[in-house]
Design a protein around this nucleic acid. Sequence first.
DNA 1: CTGGCTGCAAATAATTTGCATACAA
DNA 2: TTGTATGCAAATTATTTGCAGCCAG
Lengths: 163, 163
Amino acid sequence: MASNRDKSISEQINDIKKHLVAKGYKLTQQREVTLRVLLEHEKDHFSAEEVFLLVKEQFPEIGLATVYRTLELLSDLQVVEKINFGDGAARFDLRSTDGSHHHHHLICTECGTVEEIMEDGLLRLEQQIERQYGFAVTDHRLDFQGVCKECRAKQALNEQAAG
Amino acid sequence: MASNRDKSISEQINDIKKHLVAKGYKLTQQREVTLRVLLEHEKDHFSAEEVFLLVKEQFPEIGLATVYRTLELLSDLQVVEKINFGDGAARFDLRSTDGSHHHHHLICTECGTVEEIMEDGLLRLEQQIERQYGFAVTDHRLDFQGVCKECRAKQALNEQAAG
DNA sequence: CTGGCTGCAAATAATTTGCATACAA
DNA sequence: TTGTATGCAAATTATTTGCAGCCAG
């Protein structure tokens, strides 16, 4: 029952290294630092550029293209998920080690915050889809747009002031 | 109870024209043709480029930038939804007139087809999120990845041949 | 009329690619 | 050693923007 929450970052990097090696890839300095950055910020949804800037702090020689290539690779390996929230750039989200990775997103339309929630009430729906459409679901993505708690509080204050 | 399914395309364009005019916008030839193309292909998920090519058939003078601007405008007006499936380009999806627009997507990882399904078992979940996180849900997006019926059939055949 | 709208071309922004060199296994 | 990976710069792709003229209301 070990989830990634139970493992140190080094252990997780080691696990991922095995995946890499198994497919004939190498764990370079650049890839390791990139992984470390992702693991240290598992709740964020960084763009390639943002990852690049953070990696650069620990490894200044790295090039942006390498970060793109690494993220692409990690995406293929199912280590990260590439998501597009509609602002210009793709964002990258760590998947959980066990492959279930079912966190959903609460995207605030006021402040742009993206919060992750762990939740899974979708199994029933997936089964229904499989039955009804003959579509074999392997994965899903569920995002909610709306107004987060903080922005609602602000809105309430403003209305009070205005009213 | 009139849904957009009950209305002719001209009627729908007229409805949308009212929205436009109400906000001080004009219904130009270009916008009308673009709308017509979208309405005639309501089950597709075209990129701006694809819309452009289709509009060009009926209105050759149009420029790509105009299509982008029109789609942006229609997006603001909630007439279309701008979605990003992760291939390089944004795609545009008609919303239903009543604003509910809750269709979800079945994205086949084999052939790339995107099928729409009308379904809404998410109300309960939205309510739970509101209670649990204080997040006021206004909209959601639910996509399923997997293998569609057709590709599964093909896979089955191939396995048979191989086995 | 006239302010919004358009087409065009140039500007951005994100991402990819070619290539000579560097380095992990 | 040797093929994979990297950094850089140039190329590509999607989208946006400036601007002079155009047209719907």
